[in-house]
Write a protein that binds this DNA or RNA. Structure first.
Length: 504
RNA sequence: GGGCCUCUAGCUCAGUUGGUUAGAGCAACGGACUUUUAAUCCGUGGGUCGUGGGUUCGAUCCCCACGGGGCCUACCA
């Protein structure tokens, strides 16, 4: 297509755009033009002296019909309008959600400015007003406007504020959701404060925050299907990371003894109420720690976050129920809790055939070559549902945990825990496997699994093994889903804790 | 991946057992109103009924395909 053709087609598209406009958008575009004729529909600077929050704070409880003598200039989004012939009311909203009323009367602003206001200001516009802080005859804290200016003209109408938005509209137009729904703003604030709190806890313990590669030539550190992409410069296949683990361990080899990363992981798997294809993950490693010390750290991170953000360890969830995160969290053994729950002694030596018999009796279908897979499935069936309070489930089967050290005294299990809160897996922690010879054997076993068709089996990462061969100190490590943590702290679904979840 | 449900105005929703011109509230437009709080009152406009095909004299409604969304189910954190 030639440049001229391209331009013509662009103009055609522009015409089409303007012809097909919904009535309200056409009307607002005309108002925008009018504002630009008179001045500027989008001025770069406005003489703002106060925020809405500041004015509200300064006058928490004025009597009815008071004039304070204080003159302010402030701006906010017009959320409601109530116009009478010679007196207009507008409710202005700040980004914080704070609101204040603006009043425009004929004798203060004059006929021309009042008429222009009525003609050009719509719901949703950002409006600047300057005038005296007063209360109305009904006691509403207000600005008695001397002059007003459009701060930013909106072209699309806000949805009506008297019905809840549909779920799909909320997710696809989160910026609207944030404007009209207090809870949406609150969740963003909570998430930010939780991150601040966790970084503070880490800093107090001398952990360094680092960033490791998201684009990787070999994906590792977890069992999951990766997203694939391609590098033109290197002409090679790349993977979006499924976990940062193998790079954070390289950092520990390098002497970054206390290290953590909070960043995104990507897993090419199903999405539902508790899973998102991209999700925020915290991983932390502590040299000369083990799975006990890292469990202590995990408990501290979550309890500090609850205390810093909500001022209590007993957090109230969306449905009104209480999630009690207080006290020392229980630590139970996977094999012992499973044995107790199903009434049969189950150990790492229990033959697969016997485990299969129990599974069949319970109506659980398992088709997997690994002993540990049966144990974990049975455990989830018998025990998981009953775990409401925070609980560390300790000492997992060896064959499903290729990056974890063998238990120091119990045969057939590794030093790994999963943290469950309200029945959801919240975090996992290890005494890290640092023996490069055993690590190589574990990877080889994974490669065999992959050869037998398991798409989630780990790949053998020679560069990571080489790093281990230079000596990694004994370490504890943990990983925690941030979105999941937010769910535990609020009771919301994952798509509400992520500001912009993936939508088709 | 499998099953069930759903898509109507800017937003939230009615509705049509297939029949002339598809409705409401808020929003918009015109008018009245100097203390409103979803202001009120009078009037007006606004729709490819998700998209494409089929059945029919006639389809927004019935059928098929496709697309978006939701719930359940399976895998994974």
């Amino acid at each position: 297509m030639s440049n001229a053709d391209a331009q013509r087609s662009e103009e055609a598209q522009q015409d089409e755009f303007e012809q097909d406009l919904p009535e309200q958008i056409a009307v607002r575009l005309a108002k925008r033009d009018r504002l630009n004729e008179l001045g500027d529909a989008y001025p770069v600077a406005l003489p703002i002296t106060h925020t809405i929050d500041q004015v509200r704070e300064a006058y928490p409880a004025l009597e009815v019909d008071v004039a304070t003598g204080e003159f302010v200039g402030l701006a906010g989004r017009v959320m409601f309008q109530r116009n009478t012939g010679k007196l207009c009311f507008a409710t202005l909203q700040a980004g914080s959600g704070q609101r204040i009323q603006a009043m425009l009367s004929l004798d203060k602003v004059g006929e021309e400015q009042l008429e222009l206001y009525k003609e050009l200001v719509d719901l949703g516009d950002h409006l600047f007003v300057s005038g005296e802080v007063i209360t109305s005859k009904r006691g509403e804290l207000s600005i008695m406007v001397d002059s007003w200016k459009m701060a930013a003209k909106t072209i699309r109408p806000l949805p009506n504020l008297h019905n809840e938005l549909g779920e799909e509209y909320r997710v696809r137009h989160r910026y609207i959701d944030l404007i009209v729904r207090d809870r949406a703003r609150e969740v963003v604030q909570i998430r930010s404060k939780v991150m601040q709190s966790m970084r503070k806890t880490f800093a107090e313990r001398d952990f360094l925050e680092v960033e490791t590669p998201m684009l990787q030539t070999i994906h590792g550190g977890a069992s999951a299907r990766p997203f694939k992409t391609h590098s033109n410069a290197f002409d090679t296949e790349l993977f979006l990371r499924i976990a940062p683990e193998l790079f954070l361990k390289r950092a520990v080899v390098g002497g970054i003894d206390r290290v953590y990363e909070i960043n995104r992981n990507f897993r090419n798997e199903g999405a539902d109420r508790t899973h998102s294809p991209e999700f925020a993950m915290l991983e932390a490693y502590q040299a000369y720690g083990d799975y006990n010390s890292i469990a202590d750290l995990t408990q501290a991170l979550i309890q500090n976050a609850a205390m810093d953000v909500f001022g209590t360890h007993q957090v109230t969830l969306e449905d009104g129920s209480i999630n009690d995160l207080g006290g020392e969290w229980a630590r139970i053994s996977m094999f012992e809790s499973l044995s107790a729950a199903c009434g049969v002694e189950i150990t790492p030596e229990t033959p697969i055939a016997e485990l299969k018999k129990i599974a069949d009796k319970e109506g659980i279908e398992i088709d997997h070559p690994l002993h540990g897979k049966y144990v974990e499935e049975l455990w989830e069936h018998f025990v998981k549902g009953d775990l409401v309070n925070p609980t560390f489930v300790m000492d997992f089967p060896v064959d499903t945990s290729p990056l974890t050290r063998n238990h120091r005294s119990k045969a057939g299990v590794v030093e790994k825990w999963d943290l469950y809160i309200r029945g959801y897996e919240q975090a996992t922690g290890y005494s890290e496997l640092v023996d490069p010879v055993i690590q190589r054997e574990r990877f080889v076993a994974q490669v065999q699994l992959a050869a037998s068709g398991d798409p989630e089996a780990m790949k053998l990462d020679e560069e990571f093994l080489k790093a281990l061969e230079f000596g990694m100190p004994p370490s504890g490590g943990m990983g925690m889903g941030i979105d999941r943590l937010l769910m535990s702290l609020t009771g919301l679904g994952i798509r509400e804790t992520i500001m912009f979840p993936l939508v088709k």
